[in-house]
Every structure is written in structure tokens, then in C-alpha cells.
Design a protein around this nucleic acid. Structure first.
Lengths: 343, 343
DNA sequence: CAAGTTTCTGGGACCGCTCCCAGGCGCACA
DNA sequence: TGTGCGCCTGGGAGCGGTCCCAGAAACTTG
């Protein structure tokens, strides 16, 4: 059986390749009657254009890459990335793009990204996340002329980004803990070279200071967004007797929670706890976690939209989208007197 | 600047396109001296062959698809899939393949899979998971002649699969709970049309029966692998007073744990709990979860290996790889008397 | 009704690579 | 030294589309 090609479809419809191509790509300038004839044949045969041929001839692959740097082997199991992937995937499906996922370890697969995905012209553009604000990779990529969108913060103003309102979110957390009357408010931060962590930190610090209750340096510990690191960091922190902790992600909050449990401290009675993200684990934790909600999945779809814009017009100024954050109060931070109220 | 193409590389090396191609593809039959000349030019220029052109000419895209059906919006956040993706991704990187991720909702994106990924010849083959044993999609795909590997169980013997030893794992769980002296052993199963769930159930049932302590029908409740469903199912189950529960996944065990907590029951004192998977959440749960360990990430890499075999020789008999399972005992099922031992 | 437009349609030239085939060259053998 | 054979190498023909351009057809307009 001869392969089904555009040529064959054209033949069956009694038109030329060019005309068939126009119809299939929805270009106008084809008489309705002829258009219908072609569409009928397409319908009948189930013709679908060959991806590679299209790419080769048309210079566009309709494949978008999603690159995630794996700091540790477990990073991808972070529900944050799961949600992000979900959003990106949905957007790709909706906008007729194919998603290519690229998980790389900085050390090992580093050059695979440029060579495998980019210089081969496999992808039209890249959504990239889990990078640091001044990641050299980003410069490398922009210089290579790859359409790029970063989910998170970057220092290079020519790169479009989509990010949560980290500033507002952290401020909400601070105000909330203050409103509970907590006096010794501590924090388990992410790595400070991460833009998100740095921003949350500054905002948190500022909000506490504004309330006349500045953040005490000894109540600040740094972790790396994993629960294990947060657990260890929290153990150090607990020695300084905080009565409230703001963890920079839910996943880290879970680690903190574990440390609190091991120390025999009750939440929120002894220590109030607030996380960041509002992903499923927050709700499932015992006690359920108060957290700063951000729209991770939406960030994914938004990133795809930005990337498509970028691909179409690479010279347009880089847009930056900021997604809202909000406070979700659960049991891990209810006021002390209301503590006996159950879920 | 003229684009860097194979032609140009050949020119720079003073050889023909064909020879350059041979060198780049590692074929032999090229004089070492000439080979070196070409490789030097490649090194110097950083040439990488154009993916689409290769695909078009060579009939192989070097792209593997990973398709995951999304039963609920949250499925992908299941750490099981996270681990699987991780494994598949790593294997693709190692074996010079690109990974295309396709998350689809049965209802909405169903036909996107065949048309977007397959008929366009975008992918050389497909790893597919989260399907049911007799999923019509699988027949459809095999009939379309797409090289296919399923992670899980399928009824069609012509499809290669990689799967955990569900039978052995479930038996381990049963024996373990029996060894604790539990009398009223219940189970929260996955959906029975899932092959894994069915197998685990049969094995669990059989192992209990073999010990002269058959599974009581009223102590069996079915859920759908999500924690919420497991939580609800467990609430029903608890009314029948079980003293041990085997949940068919860690994620479900977490839901059960929540239900137990809400019912004021202690684990493992009142009810011993065993999960399945041994993914990170199991260790992080309070108390840490006894579980049946399976090598999810390895399943991913194995699937890629099988798929590559399949692509190379589609007519070879379908291999089935079974990965070992093992019992990991943690606090959720320690013997009653040892309960006071802390972590 | 001729000439000038505008609208459609068809053909050719690629896109960059792989693969097949033919020819050149060197060597062994007779 | 002539012939045969094997090893390398180069050229040509696609792979299946897109895009540009020219020419045909249909429609204006004076």
C-alpha cells in the first residue's frame, strides 16, 4: 500500500499539491467547492501530514520543549513540578503543539540540552524552570537565539518570564503569623540564589520589620526546597525556640512538620506553620497546612502562551506575567484558643 | 551566515556529503585519516545534524513517546508517575533519544494521541501506562503498527510489558500482616479493571487463604488509586473493625492513614497499615509506612530498553519483564509490643 | 468588448539528510 | 602484466512537505 502523502491526497481530490496544502493548513484563497473536495478526501483517508517533512520545509516543528534541571534525583517528584508539567502539557494539547520533556542533571546531561534539542532544530522554543536567576545556561540559550520562557525569576530582562507574586505571598504569610500574635517568627528558606527564594525572603523580612517586629537572623535557616533538607534545617531552628515558622514551600513545610513532631512540639499550639504553594500535600498533611497558594498549573499554560508569542515575534519586548498568590488558612496556624475546633 | 549543514561540513573537510554522513553516523568503511578530518570539522564547527531532515530521510525520528492517561486531573502528581517519568527520561538521555510526553484525558484528548504523535510519524514508538488490561486503545495502537511497550499488565500477549511482581508483593504484604498476628485483615484495592490491582488482589486473597485465614469480603473496599478515594473507602472499611489494612498504593495508604487519624485510631496499635510502591511519601508519613517496594524508576528505563528493541525488530516475540518487589517494614506495622520504640 | 485587475491554481525549487549504486583505485593472484 | 575483486568514495534520487512565482480563469471597468 502506497503511503498516504499530500501528493496522494491531492491526486484523489483532483487538485495540485499546493492547493491541498493550502486547504490543510487553513489558508484562504481556495474556492469553497474545491476546499470541500479536499477536506472530504482528508476525512475519508484520515490523512495527517508528516511531521518531519513539515518541519523540514516549513522551519517550524510545532514541538515545544520543557526543560527542568534536576538538582537532586528527586526533584521531579516535587508536586510543584508535577503541576507545572500538567499545565504545560494541557496548553500544548490545546494549542496543537507537541511537548518534549527534558529533565537534565546539571553535571551530566548539561550539553545535551543545546545539542539534542536546540541545534537539531527539534524544538521551536523552550520553557525552562528550576534555574537560578543568573544561570549561565540562560545566557547561552538566549545567545543561541532560542525562543525562551522562564518560569521563575531571571535577571536578564530580555527573557520573558511567568512567575508567582512571591513578594505579595511572603508578605501575606508574615502578616498572618503576626496576626496570630506570634513573637518569635522563624523561616526555612530556599537556596538564596534562587530568585523565588530571595524575593520571598526580602518580602517576608520587610513585612515583619514594617510591623515593628524584625526578623531575627538566628531564626533564619536555609534549605534547598527538599523536605529532607528542610527537616534538618528545622531541627537547628527549633533549638532557638521559634513559635512560628514560614517554610518557602509546602514540601519543605512537610519536612519541618516532621521535625516538629520528632521534637514533641505541637502544631499550631507550640509552633504555627505556614508553607508556600498549596499543592495537594498541604491539604493532606496532619495537621493540614496553612499555605500561600500559587497557581502552578496556570503558570505552565501561561508559559506556553508566552512562548508561542515569542516564537511568532522574537523581537517583541519580553513580557513578564505575574500570577496572584493568596493565603489559605488551615489548622497548622489557627489561633491558639480556637485550636480545639476540628477540621 | 550560511547555515551549517552536512553539505557544508563535507565541503570544509574536502569530502562528499556521503562520506561525511558515514563518519557522523559512525558507520565504518571510511579511511581513518579521512574520518579524522571530518570529525575535526564537526568538532570545530559544532555541527549537529538537523533532526527533521534525518527523520524524513531516514524514517526514524529518535523520539520516543511516553503516554499517560489522566483519569483525574491529579493523576500526574502521583509520585508513581513522577518516578516513572524520571526513569524514562534518564533512559532516553542515555540512549540518545528524545522524550515526548503526552498526558491525555480519556475524554477530551483521546484522538490526539493517534493523530498528533503517531500518524505524523513523530515518534518511533510509545511507552504507555495507566491503561486498563483490555484497553481498546492498546488494540488500536497495535493494529496501527506502532511499536509499543506497556508499563503494567495487558491481556494482549503481543505487547511487550514491564511490570512489578505484583503477585509476590501482595503475598509479602499478606504474610507480613499475618506474622503480626492480625486477625481482621482488610484491604483498600485499586480499580479492579486495572491489571495491577486485580493481580494484587488475587495474590493477597490467596496468601491469606493459604494461611487458613481467608479474606473476608466485607473487609474489601475498592478505590481508584487516589488518596481521596482511599480515604473515603477506608471510612467505610473502618466501620467493620479491621485490625490491619493493605492499601494497594502508598498514595492510597496515606488516605487511609488520614481516615484512621480522624477515627481516633492509632497506627499500628489499633490498625496495622501496609502500602505499595515505597515512594518518598511512604517514608515521610507519620508514622512511616510499611510498604511493598517496587522499582518504579527502573521500570521506566526498562521500558525504554524494550521499546528500542521493539523498534529495531518489530516482529520479535514480545518480551515481558517482571521487576522484583520486596517488603519494607516501618512503623506503621511494627508488632504491638515493640510499639514504644521510637524512630 | 478590450484591457486591466483580482482571484485561484499548478509547478518547480528547495529544506537537509540517508541510502543505493556505480565507478575509481589498489592489491592479490595467476 | 593482465584480470578480478574488494574497499572507499562520490553523485543522484528520493523522503514529504512549504513557499514562491507565473499563468489561467473570472471579474472589473471605461
Amino acid at each position: 500500500m502506497a503511503r498516504l502523502t499530500l501528493e496522494r491526497v491531492a491526486e484523489l481530490a483532483g487538485v495540485s499539491r499546493s492547493t491541498a496544502s493550502r486547504v490543510i493548513n487553513g489558508q484562504d484563497g481556495v474556492r469553497p467547492e474545491i476546499r470541500k473536495r479536499v477536506l472530504d478526501v482528508v476525512e475519508l483517508t484520515g490523512f495527517v501530514p508528516h511531521a518531519a517533512a513539515r518541519t523540514l520545509a516549513g522551519q517550524r516543528s510545532r514541538i515545544l520543549g520543557l526543560a527542568i534541571r534536576q538538582t537532586t534525583a528527586q526533584v521531579f517528584s516535587d508536586p510543584y513540578f508535577a503541576a507545572l508539567v500538567q499545565g504545560v502539557s494541557r496548553a500544548c494539547n490545546d494549542r496543537d503543539q507537541t511537548l518534549s520533556l527534558f529533565l537534565f542533571e546539571s553535571t551530566h546531561d548539561h550539553d545535551l540540552l543545546p545539542s539534542r534539542l536546540l541545534r537539531t532544530k527539534l524544538v521551536d522554543g523552550l520553557v525552562i524552570t528550576a534555574t537560578y536567576a543568573d544561570d549561565p545556561l540562560l545566557w547561552q540559550l538566549t545567545e543561541a537565539g532560542v525562543p525562551l520562557v522562564v518560569v521563575g525569576e531571571v535577571s536578564n530582562p530580555d527573557i520573558p518570564t511567568v512567575d508567582a507574586d512571591n513578594h505579595g505571598g511572603a508578605a501575606l504569610a508574615a502578616e498572618h503569623l503576626l496576626s496570630l500574635g506570634r513573637q518569635r517568627i522563624g523561616t526555612v528558606t530556599g537556596p538564596m540564589r534562587s530568585g523565588a527564594a530571595a524575593t520571598r525572603f526580602r518580602a517576608f523580612e520587610r513585612a515583619l520589620a514594617a510591623a515593628g517586629q524584625p526578623l531575627q537572623p538566628d531564626l533564619v535557616v536555609e534549605a534547598d526546597f527538599t523536605d529532607d533538607a528542610a527537616h534538618d534545617a528545622a531541627k537547628r531552628l527549633l533549638a532557638r525556640g521559634p513559635d512560628a515558622i514560614f517554610a518557602f514551600s509546602d514540601r519543605m513545610a512537610l519536612g519541618v512538620l516532621r521535625a516538629l513532631g520528632e521534637a514533641g512540639l505541637s502544631v499550631p499550639d507550640d509552633v504555627a506553620l505556614v508553607g508556600f504553594d498549596d499543592l495537594p500535600p498541604a491539604r493532606l498533611a496532619r495537621p493540614p497546612l496553612t499555605t500561600i497558594r500559587q497557581e502552578v498549573e496556570q503558570a505552565g499554560t501561561e508559559a506556553v502562551a508566552l512562548l508561542l508569542e515569542r516564537i511568532q515575534d522574537p523581537s517583541a519586548p519580553a513580557r513578564r506575567v505575574e500570577l496572584p498568590t493568596s493565603l489559605v488558612v488551615r489548622e497548622s496556624s489557627v489561633p491558639r484558643r480556637a485550636q480545639e475546633v476540628s477540621a
